[in-house]
């Protein structure tokens, strides 16, 4: 690469080799239009809308300052949504991450089979709507096959219809959908750990469990940190599964009562059922701020950029 730029310029200046703005502009133009029209301007407009009382149906609204935000802070349903979402994220992330690490380590130690990796990934490629319906059926209190199996162990057969079970159930369904994908990301990280470490440990008589806690987990930390940042952000945005699993069959999305009304469901309801776009936008801005804060702290706490290998 450097050899080329050191050569005497061919047919003009060195700049031509690397284009410059005049060339880059045409390459970037379509994507830039897409970004500006569907990401940048909407972001600014979203923040603007949050300071207005814009109504979906009339399409009109006036600037009302920070009224939406002060109303939001006193809205019990908003705090309920935050609480429900946080509870969902906690259960989903903990179960998904633990299972994914176990799957990844098992695949790494037992088999490199591409078939097994493929099967493990399959649920991640299936539409959320399909996954939700599969599990509403499997967990149906009357006829559900899996509900029966849980019944043998004395676990109550109300899943999507119980105020206490609905969030753990949805978290479990999404764990099923995402554990293989997460496992593959972690599996890729495992491949970067030198095999010689395990050989040395095995010679010293270390058990698999010791290798897992003393070698694998510490050296996996940077990958794990990035995976956690991505999955936590994704987990906060749960919508499809809740909408489909609680909204069909005579139910109300976010139900029973408000037990599964996660933040996305509440924003959707405010914007498209109650037509309060301004208020919904204010909630979206709050969500963005919360996600940015969480990401920042995660990267800080988990020291994502540093590896233990070099130290």
């Amino acid at each position: 690469m450097t050899a080329i730029s050191n050569r005497p310029a061919v047919g003009g200046s060195k700049l031509n080799l690397y284009g410059g703005w005049k060339v880059a502009f045409w390459f970037l133009l379509p994507a830039l239009i897409g970004f500006v029209v569907f990401y940048l301007v909407p972001s600014i407009r979203g923040i603007y809308l949050s300071f207005t009382d814009t109504n979906l149906l009339s399409g009109r609204g006036e600037v009302i300052g920070t009224e939406n935000y002060s109303e939001l802070l006193q809205d019990d349903l908003f705090w309920n949504a935050i609480k429900v979402t946080a509870w969902y994220v906690l259960i989903n992330i903990v179960s998904q991450t633990i299972i994914a690490v176990l799957i990844a380590v098992m695949m790494d130690r037992l088999t490199k089979s591409a078939f097994i990796r493929g099967v493990v990934l399959l649920p991640w490629l299936i539409p959320n709507v399909v996954v939700a319906l599969l599990f509403v059926w499997l967990l149906d209190p009357n006829l559900g096959y899996v509900a029966d199996v849980f019944g043998w162990f004395g676990i109550d057969s109300d899943f999507f219809t119980s105020t206490t079970a609905v969030i753990p159930t949805i978290a479990g369904v999404n764990t099923w959908r995402h554990m293989g994908y997460t496992a593959l990301l972690i599996f890729a990280g495992l491949q970067t750990i030198p095999g010689s470490l395990y050989e040395a440990a095995a010679l010293d008589g270390a058990t698999e469990m010791q290798m897992l806690t003393r070698i694998t987990i510490p050296l996996l930390r940077p990958v794990l940190a990035l995976v956690l940042v991505v999955t936590v952000i994704g987990s906060f945005q749960v919508f499809d599964t809740v909408q489909v699993a609680t909204g069909g069959f005579g139910g109300r999305p976010g139900g029973p009562v408000n037990a599964s009304r996660v933040i996305y469901i509440y924003i959707y309801e405010k914007a498209f059922v109650q037509s309060q776009l301004g208020y919904a936008s204010a909630m979206s801005v709050m969500l963005l701020v919360v996600l940015m804060g969480i990401t920042y702290f995660q990267l800080k706490i988990l020291r994502a950029g540093e590896s233990d290998l070099s130290s």
């Binding site: 284009g19 060339v23 990401y39 407009r45």
Partner: peptide, 28 residues
Amino acid sequence: RLKFKGREAVFFMFIAGMMLPPIFILIP
């Protein structure tokens, strides 16, 4: 592959777009 002024800025902008929650831009 190309070198131009502001390349890093454009790239950073796109990456930042990846962090936006879809619902934040959905309403606009």
